[in-house]
Nucleic acid binder design. Structure first.
Lengths: 335, 335
DNA sequence: CTTGCATATGTTACCGATAACACACAATAT
DNA sequence: ATATTGTGTGTTATCGGTAACATATGCAAG
């Protein structure tokens, strides 16, 4: 691995002259430039970005901390992030926390050490603990998908309240009254907001949300399985299941099948988050779809914007609309 | 952002002493250690990994270059990579090439500049062009999923030949003889090997593969759609479609539905790559499943191993077995 | 003929860390 | 009493770049 000094020696000039050729800055005679370029290609010289970063205090690297890249919502979002970042010459480090605050804190610590220019974060907890070090070190960051209540921070997320409202309204319109809500963790803002959307829809229909019908658990297949099992064992059995994410919905479908319930004849199932068309031959689930790719794009654009513009600005909250897609998993109340 | 010099000043010692405290190296009196630790926490000092990396020539960062993180096979693989890497204290930069050699070359260039310690690469082309700079700069790398024919390089991949063989044998056992093979790009080794597996299975059954029934196209929904449309328009129509990846299979199912063919009654469909259980309520496709997560894990383990052990070793090719999972998308030949 | 500016290149210091070496002092060995 | 060893700390140089400043030459303007 040759350095700028090697190139300089070979071309018989100073390091500075080589630097000028590389960065096309200052005055260089045509002849010198050619000699330097010759030396560069002979040595296969590649500038060391580390050294540059050390001086410039800029790594042109950002990080994306999410809970699990394996969740198709986050996969798509990650793709949106990487597309925008790479277009603007930034690299993306990705990290999976699995909802662990400890993992999250460790990743943040490492990323601070690595001097990433900015951070996109799907926060695991609703407290400010995780982001405290970020503020302290002055690292620009944008919250993704979730936010931290009571703070004003840059954040990009789906419109959970209205999305949840529309989905609930759809069930109510179909005549459902016994609706089991399988939510994510009670501390996560997406859960809270979606339950709130559900509550409002019920309220606006002249009903009150039966809190005993709201289950809380992890946003995972296992969490969904446990909640669905419990919910469907209740008497009288709910006529609809309202899942707060795709994993939970998938488990609900599984449990329904296991206990011999047909969807939607015996049980309606609706959920947040759609699955990419590439994964489903025949789209079946009625969903509130979030624009995951755009979320990733916009969060990254916002972050990179923060990096380039110096002055402090008002925090920005970008809330993207969800889209209700009615399919075959929801139907009228069974007789 | 405070530096080691700030800490030293505040604690009234030299930078070296602070460095010793941080790294717990050399001799330090208890009293000095406490003063330094005090200063560190007062300043919220975080060591600059860039500066360290510059000295040590080690960034503890690797990169993963793949075609598209959105493909569930690669998503799962990426998760395997990140899990092993983070466990060993490495960060992962991820890059999507979309099968573009230009993108690939650009990413590689940037990553070389950023001094990543190693690279995991799903090569876009079958030539050595892309990896030439890697060898030249002496950057350790492991090929993933695909390889470069005629070279001996570290690589981890699925057993395409035997996987394809088993899947073909399954179709032949069911009595299918008119089988359309919807392959990926003809230059990609996974395509080549899978077609070879198909050919061998046919040969061993006393048949010869009808090359006019082999279609080549991108490993994408669009590619699959075009190939499936063409294949199913042929006369006599094939009784089975053999897709070489999940996207192609999904499009094949779509085309079948569009032209009113029932699967598997009118048409059997089999494919490489399974979808994670979380995405499918009722698993339907007969597949040759590749252990994507393990592939990511093993490739990363191999790469990190190369980084820590100095001496040159024999290149290692790890070929992981695929698993035939027979489901409902394949059935006997229609009468 | 001197001043001034454009052109071309080199020198020094620095970004933030650490290895290697130097130095000072105490305790122990001879 | 002196040499040796262990302990604790500081100084210098370095990783690979670049900003800021310094230097040198040629040519046009006053």
């Amino acid at each position: 691995m040759s350095t700028i000094a090697d190139v300089a020696r070979r071309a018989g000039v100073s390091k500075m002259t080589v630097s000028r050729v590389i960065n096309d800055s200052g005055y260089i005679s045509q002849e010198t430039r050619e000699r330097v370029e010759q030396a560069i290609s002979e040595l296969g010289y590649i500038p060391n970005a580390l050294a540059r970063s050390l001086r410039f205090k800029q790594t042109r690297t950002i990080a994306l901390i999410l809970t699990d890249i394996t969740n198709p919502f986050f996969t798509t979002l990650a793709r949106g992030v990487e597309d925008v970042a790479s277009e603007q010459g930034f690299s993306v480090i990705f990290c999976n926390t699995d909802e662990s605050e400890k993992e999250e804190a460790e990743y943040i610590n490492v990323l601070l050490q690595k001097q990433v220019d900015g951070l996109l974060l799907v926060p695991t907890s609703s407290t400010e603990d995780a982001i405290a070090p970020l503020r302290e070190q002055g690292l620009p960051f944008v919250l993704l998908d979730r936010y931290v209540p009571g703070t004003r921070l840059d954040s990009v997320r789906g419109d959970s309240i209205h999305g949840a409202y529309a989905l609930m309204q759809h069930l109510l319109d179909l005549g459902h009254r016994r609706i089991a809500v399988l939510s994510g963790p009670a501390e996560v803002t997406t859960s809270v907001d979606r339950v709130e959307g559900v509550r409002r829809a019920a309220h606006d229909a002249g009903l009150e949300l039966d809190l005993s019908q709201v289950y809380y658990g992890p946003f995972s297949l296992e969490g969904g399985y446990a909640m669905a099992t419990q919910a469907l064992a209740a008497e009288p059995r709910p006529t609809a299941i309202y899942a707060m994410n795709n994993f939970i919905a998938m488990s609900a479908l599984r449990v329904a099948r296991e206990i011999g319930l047909r969807v939607p004849e015996d049980l309606s199932v609706v959920t947040f988050d759609d699955l990419p068309a590439a994964f489903v031959a025949e789209p079946f689930l009625t969903v509130a779809e979030q624009p995951a790719y755009e979320m990733g794009q916009q969060a990254t654009a916002l972050l990179l914007d923060r990096l380039s513009s110096k002055g402090p600005t008002e925090p920005m909250e970008i809330i993207l609309p969800t889209r209700l897609i009615v399919r075959k998993s929801s139907g009228p109340v069974p007789a």
